[in-house]
Nucleic acid binder design. Structure first.
Lengths: 149, 149
DNA sequence: CGCTAGATGAGACTGAATCGCAACTAGACG
DNA sequence: CGTCTAGTTGCGATTCAGTCTCATCTAGCG
């Protein structure tokens, strides 16, 4: 297992050191199916051979957010979570409210809407945040079978 | 000054008691230009003759959120804030990233986009959250004049 | 006026997130 | 391959928003 881990190579590209702690965080992140909290990463690192200090997890996460490899989302519950995502392209996340799995969706024609808002309010909109919550196909199926039981 | 305060009358309609603490919170909220944090309300209540306990501020805020008189927004900074808003109609908020002032915008044709996402991802989207950040007209003007100076 | 469910205040408590600082190490350089 | 040092890390203390408990209080009704 060399390291096809995109998080690590991106760190290298950014001129950051590839420390043991960062490898551990990167691994913990890439094995998460959907969104995860800082605490999840912390717990995952502890299950592996290398535990990472809480402060370091936060520092690494901040770094990854800066690099655009990870994004912060605020769950409807108010909790803070993160999702791994492709850098560069502007996109949004659809988060399953049952299992937490998340998928990215592309830019999806929001632009004309933003322009409409800009002209009607006079605001110069420079950032937005669209978070979508619902049930993923699997959880819909589960919910449906439970209901019929 | 009787009480044309919409927050208070809505509380009454919902069968809730109009206590002194709630009046204080309602006043603090209605005098906020834009978004505000729980701490802001707390501070505002202290400046007036009637200080409200921290726990009560949170309880009142939760209540107002339930009644749809106030909405929670998560600032890009990660802070939790609230915005007063009209109940009932589905809408979104545009928040000025400089002064915090916020205005509501209506439903704005997001529906077709949501449908597109549902069919492409298989998710059943049941809630979404769109928060827009940018400069309000006043702050744009201020920024522009500063830049030319 | 008196009653009672609902509301409040005070402050202890929780848990996430941050900070400061000494110790460590990745990676550059000779 | 050894040395050097800025970037990192770990640890523990700390902060701070938000919650909880419970005794006390009161809005609003009859």
């Amino acid at each position: 297992m060399q390291q096809p881990n995109p998080v690590l190579s991106a760190l290298g590209d950014a001129g950051k050191r590839l420390t043991i702690a960062r490898r551990a965080v990167a691994e913990a992140i890439t094995e998460q199916a959907g969104h995860f909290t800082a605490e999840d990463v912390l717990a995952a690192s502890r299950l592996r051979r290398r535990a990472v200090a809480r402060a370091t997890v936060f520092r690494s996460l901040d770094l990854l957010v800066d690099l655009g490899l990870v994004e912060r989302v605020d769950l409807p519950s108010g909790d803070h979570a993160y999702v791994a995502c492709e850098p560069d392209a502007h996109h949004h996340h659809v988060v399953c409210s049952a299992c937490g799995r998340s998928v990215e969706v592309g830019e999806l024609g929001l632009r004309p809407i933003l322009e409409r808002i800009e002209s009607s309010t006079g605001f110069a909109i420079d950032s937005h945040r669209l978070e979508l919550f619902g049930l993923c196909p699997e959880c819909r199926a589960t919910a449906a079978s439970k209901r019929s039981a």
